[in-house]
Amino acid sequence: MDIKQIASAGTMESSDVYVEIAPGNGTLEISLESVVVQQFGDAIRAVVLEVLQEQQVDNANVRIVDRGALECVLRARVETAALRGKGNV
């Protein structure tokens, strides 16, 4: 499913994560910046992909700026950004 509009969710505060999602060029591109990238980078990428798959998003540019969010917070922010991007609030 396509992302219709640029949307974001979350904040840059500690324990939160900022997710920005924009219409893609035919593929799913994910950029990740995280204070715990060495320890949790792979885990974060896997969760982001899983949530986007659940949301049936396969064509989008996604930017993640993580400030040490727990998995449940990351899932919530990606889902919110995807729903907002689909215009499905």
């Binding site: 500690s14 324990s15 204070v35 715990v36 320890q39 949790f40 400030r67 040490g68 969010a69 727990l70």
Partner: peptide, 8 residues
């Protein structure tokens, strides 16, 4: 100390 800081 807190149990975790920034997920660590």
């Amino acid at each position: 100390a807190p149990m975790f800081r920034a997920r660590l």
